[in-house]
Simulated assay, not measured.
Amino acid sequence: MAVLITVTLVIVVALVFDFTNGFHDTANAMATSVATGALKPRQAVLISAVLNLVGAFISTAVASTISNGIIREGPGGIEITPTMIFAGLCGAVLWNLATWYLGLPSSSTHALFGGLIGAAIIGAGFNSVDFGVVLSKIVVPAVVSPFVAGAVALLATYAAYRITKNARAKGSEAGFRHGQTISASLVSLAHGTNDAQKTMGVITLTLIAAKYQASGSGVQLWVILACGLAIGAGTYVGGWRIMKTVGKNITDVQSPQGFAAETSSAATILISSHLGFALSTTQVTSGSVIGAGLGKRLAVVHWNVVGRIATGWVVTLPAAALVGGVAAFIASTSTVGLIIVAVLLAAGGVTFYALARRKPITSADVAAPEPALAGVGAGPGSSGSTSVEGTVA
C-alpha cells in the first residue's frame, strides 16, 4: 500500500510538472506570433494547447530515452525507487515556477533531467546515472541546437527580406502574418512531440521502478493521454511572463522574422524528436529568435537579455539537481520525510504564485500594438515602453 501511495503521489506531481511545462513553454511556440499580431493571445494559447495534445500522440522516442536511458534501472542496473523520482520532480517543478516568476525562458527539459539526476545520485550513487546517454542525448543537443536553429533562422530571415525586397510593405507583412499561423502551429505540435513525452518517460520509469510495468516496455496509452491533457491545459493558461521576454525583450520581432524563427524551431524540434533527442524547446526557440534578429539589417538584439537567458540555461541543470538531491535526502528517510517534501513543494508553489500576483503580467502586456500604432517607435516621451522598444527607437 505504501508503494501505491508513493507511485500515485509521483504521478500527480509529474502531471503538475507537465502543467507547469505547458504554461512555462507556451512562449516558445507563440511569443513571436503574438508579438507581431499574427495571432491574438488567447487564440494563440488555444491553438497551442490543442496541438500540444495532438503532438503527444505522434511519437514516444523521447519518452524511451528517459524511461530506458539516463537512469540505469531494471536487471543489472540500479534500483531506482518512486521516492527518488518524486524528489527529482520536486526540483524540476520548483525551478520551473522560479524561472516563470522571473520571466526567464529556461529549459523545463534540463530542470527535469537535473532533478532526476540529483535525486538518483543521492539515492543510489553516481552509478545510477548513465552519463554517456546524458552527454550524447542531452548535453550535446543542448549545446548545438540553439546555434543550429539560430543559423537557420538567420539565413531564413535574410532570404525573406531579400526575396520580398520590402518586407515592411503591407502585402508582404500580411502574407508573413498568415504564414505565422501555420509556423507557430508547427512549433506547438513539435513541442507536444518532445516535451509531453518527457513526463511520459518519468511516469513509465516510476511504474517500472515500482514493478507495476516490465522493464524495457513502452509507454501506456493512459499515460500518453494524461500527459497530453496536462501539458495542453497548462498551455491554455498562458505563460505571459515568459512570452513577454521571448516576444518583446530579445529583439523587435517583425512578421518575416517571426515566421523564420518559428519554422526553424519546428524543423529542429521535430527532427530531434524523431531521433529521440530530449531537446529543450526553450533553447531552440530562443536561438531562433536571436538568429532572426541578426538576420535583419539594422535590427537590434539585446545581448544583456540574451546573457541572462544563457546564464539560466547553464544554471538550470545543476540547480534542479541540487534541489532534487536535497529532496531525495529528506524524502528517503521515512514517510514523514516524504510528506515534508510534498508540503514544502506546495508551499513553494503558493509562494511563487503569490509573488506573481503582486506584479502581474497579462495577455495585454504581450499583445501586438493596434494597427494605428504599428511602426511607431517608443521615443523618450512614450510611457510604459520596454527596453526593446526604447532601443529600437
Rank of each mutant, 00 (worst) to 15 (best):
K170Y: 06
R358K: 14
S217Q: 14
A331N: 01
A14W: 04
A159V: 08
A230G: 10
S215W: 09
A124C: 03
V140A: 10
C90W: 04
N127V: 13
A63C: 07
T263M: 07
A160K: 06
T199D: 02
S108Q: 13
T285I: 15
G390Q: 13
G375V: 05
H178I: 13
L155D: 00
S387Y: 12
V366N: 05
A230K: 11
Y212R: 01
T6V: 13
Q213R: 12
N96Q: 08
L15W: 00
G247L: 05
T99W: 00
S288E: 10
S385Y: 11
H110R: 08
T181C: 06
S215Y: 14
Y353V: 14
L94C: 14
T109V: 12
I224V: 09
V305S: 03
A278G: 09
S145K: 11
A92L: 12
G118N: 01
L39Q: 04
I330C: 09
V326K: 01
I11F: 02
S255Y: 01
F23N: 03
N52A: 12
T65L: 07
S106P: 00
V7W: 04
A61V: 09
M200P: 02
S185C: 12
S265T: 12
I85D: 01
T263W: 13
P318F: 07
K248M: 00
A14D: 05
S334V: 02
L89V: 06
V16H: 04
A124H: 06
V34G: 06
S128V: 04
I309M: 06
P380R: 06
A190T: 06
P105F: 12
A378E: 04
G337N: 07
A364Y: 15
A230V: 12
L53N: 07
L317M: 15
Y158G: 01
T333P: 05
N68V: 09
A327L: 08
P146V: 14
F23A: 10
D130C: 13
A328R: 03
G258A: 07
A61W: 10
A278P: 09
L205D: 02
Q283H: 15
V350F: 15
A378S: 03
G234T: 04
H24Q: 12
N52V: 03
A111P: 09
I121Y: 02
S332K: 00
G76I: 02
T164M: 13
K211H: 09
T8K: 05
S286M: 15
G150A: 02
A56Q: 11
T109L: 07
T20V: 10
G325I: 10
T65S: 01
L317Y: 11
F352L: 14
G390M: 11
G77Y: 11
G125M: 00
D365N: 13
A169G: 15
A120W: 11
K359W: 04
I5W: 13
T333H: 14
M30L: 15
V152D: 01
I11A: 00
A226L: 15
V323S: 00
T268I: 08
N304I: 06
G55M: 07
N68D: 03
G337A: 10
V187D: 13
F57W: 06
V54E: 06
F17L: 00
A87V: 11
I80M: 05
G218K: 11
V366Q: 08
S383D: 08
G381N: 05
L344G: 08
L39K: 05
L298D: 02
T311L: 10
L102T: 09
E73I: 12
G150N: 06
V306W: 14
A98M: 05
G55R: 11
S288Y: 06
L4Q: 01
G76R: 11
